[in-house]
Write a protein that binds this DNA or RNA. Sequence first.
DNA 1: CAATAATAGATGAAAATGCATCTATATAAG
DNA 2: CTTATATAGATGCATTTTCATCTATTATTG
Lengths: 143, 143
Amino acid sequence: MYPTKEETRLWVALNLSQRKIYREMDTALKTEGLPPLRWYDVLWELERATCGGLRPYEMGQKLNFEQSNLSRLLQRLVCEGLVEEFVYPDDGRGKVLQITARGREVRKQMWKIYGSLIHKHISKVSDQDDMATAVSALNLLIG
Amino acid sequence: MYPTKEETRLWVALNLSQRKIYREMDTALKTEGLPPLRWYDVLWELERATCGGLRPYEMGQKLNFEQSNLSRLLQRLVCEGLVEEFVYPDDGRGKVLQITARGREVRKQMWKIYGSLIHKHISKVSDQDDMATAVSALNLLIG
DNA sequence: CAATAATAGATGAAAATGCATCTATATAAG
DNA sequence: CTTATATAGATGCATTTTCATCTATTATTG
């Protein structure tokens, strides 16, 4: 029923480290006049998506987005010309998203900051075995 | 400059796992008519704090809170009678926070849900050595 | 086929968050 | 001592997030 001390320690560390790093990243992006970090995930998913693009609900599942939140975020992305929406012929309720050339460009700009901050923080875990262990431990939690 | 693949994998897993679990916890608390998870951290810090209580800015540092955000969160906690504010004699700018009896009670209620969800998720990392490794890896990131 | 339930997505209203700025007190420097 | 600077905390305003609900379409079931 209740967690062990060590389980709690892992959760607390997970929570604090994520929040701390995320906040710093988000602030850095804003300082550089770039969009918030949340946008990156969307752009990156779309850039990776195979030809056909992605449906909003798929994106939501992948990224753990609140539906209404994602809906409005997409409006902003479309508004900025970073993403385009297309009708999805096979399902009249839905639509398909694709990243634009400008979207790719912005994502690349963001990566300069984002990527370097990932390295700055995560490289503190210098032992490669520990890194691999941590990765697989955390991946168990996502499942 | 840029992160290695493995560094990126760790950050992505950290991010996704935290978000997913946190959201589920927060939703569960609301469903039970309890306050949001963010309140828990504040109450717990105050409950652990030695006799004198805690200053808001100390809390902010510990929990990585935006100052204005914490300020308003404290207003809500005081308003609900979970936290009390006292003048801090040694510094006319500041104040000291203390948890109330009701605050302790609410924290305990929240722990029933929160604790069981920590266990539910984190126990997926069943290997104790991996757990310990993950904890110390993540703690490197907080420092 | 008709009726019911489920799903994709949008939206109004309320709450939370972040940013910039403001006040008041404390500390440092001339 | 006086002025400049830093810190604790509050607050107005804009943006973001959530919650509940709504519409439209698809899937299911009798």
